[in-house]
Amino acid sequence: MTTTTTAQAEVAAAGTTYVPLSPGAERIGRALDWVIVAATVLVLTGAFHLHFMLTAGDWDFWLDWKDREYWIVLSPVMAITFCGAVHYILWQHFRLPFGATLCVTLLVVAEWIVRYVGWHGWSHYPINLLTPAYFYPGALALDAILLLSGSWVVAGILGGSLFGFLFFPGNWAWLAAYHVPVEVNGIVMTLADYIGYENIRTGTPEYIRIIERGTLRTFGQHSAPVSAAFAAFLCTLVYWMWWFIGKWFSNVKYITSKGL
């Protein structure tokens, strides 16, 4: 006598060739899950942190680089890259929608470790100068929209846009405090500027962070929303591009005997 499982019923309904796993295989599969999770965490943390430091670099690193033009555009655009690729892998192969949140969480953990141990512990820079930005608001929204829509196109348009657009207001919660003005020997600076000035950086002179040179400042002194809107647009495109990079990385190609 045989019993019909829910999975088998689903298979029958779908007319596919799915064979449910035995309880033993399920247990082994679950154990393997944790091996894969551990390996993924290590590889993803290292790779994404390296990628982000090489691309967003100083803009994300220092308090006095978090400006209202480049930082707002550059950081989310460089961060949504891995999110798009991991989204493809986890969603297309496993129907798991947490790729973006996983990526940005691992990135921020790596950033805190490097900055706290290396730059604060060994080099004595204050933590407030080194605090990394986070991408949680946009990543959570992106994950949720992928699941709710089930579409990478919709995820790119809505989720990608939110990833870029929520970055600045999400971080302003802690960053605003450093944009309070101070007077330094007759010159007005923000606290962020002065904290950066005080803490000597031999290889990061003041002139290379003179970044606000464009004409965005003519937008009624509201450059940040304009930059955020631009970041939202770019994030959509970059998300789609990296979705396909994820596809390229996660598909197995076989060489046929004819090709040998």
Binding site: W65, D67, H179, P181, T190, D193, I210, E212, S223
Partner: peptide, 8 residues
């Protein structure tokens, strides 16, 4: 009251 980063 907040200001943008200064770049003079």
């Amino acid at each position: 009251v907040t200001l943008p980063l200064q770049s003079a």
